[in-house]
Amino acid sequence: MATVELRFSALPEHVRTARLVAAAVARRAGVDEAVLDEVRLAVGEACTRAVGLHRSNGVDMPVRVVLTEEEKKFSIEVGDEVPETSSGPGSRTGDEAAGHPAPAAGEPGAEEAEDEGTMGLAVISGLVDDVEVTSGPGGGVIRMSWPTTPTVELP
């Protein structure tokens, strides 16, 4: 059962809302203050990527963000509705769907990143230790998790 679930229209202005909500829920769940910046950035990157995929593929459905407080970790799932098989400009490529990061900076591909934000996955994989990128006929999902510090229960 998700702690908080968020669905938003695939518009750039809503990505900030998703970041704020994710950081607030992560803080409540006991994610270390020092890591909240990473949570904020990683969720932002995942949502930006999903918004980009929806828009470039003409998908009207909302982007899904599922925030779950588990026993010793806090997990976030960001799901898009762009099927793996979709083609055309901006569709998910085989490489990207398999979780390979975008070209690193300094490599020839980096300069084309300006419009497509292909550095997003590279940032996520650089930031988050526990991350999984999957995609199927129903769309793609980025799953990330962070350890939580258990709150001390007073007797």
Binding site: L41, A110, E114, D115, G120, V123
Partner: peptide, 16 residues
């Protein structure tokens, strides 16, 4: 206060 990969992309574009 906040910078993501989209911002990095814009800076790389500016450099170019």
């Amino acid at each position: 206060d906040f910078l993501d990969s989209t911002g990095l992309g814009v800076l790389v574009g500016g450099l170019k």
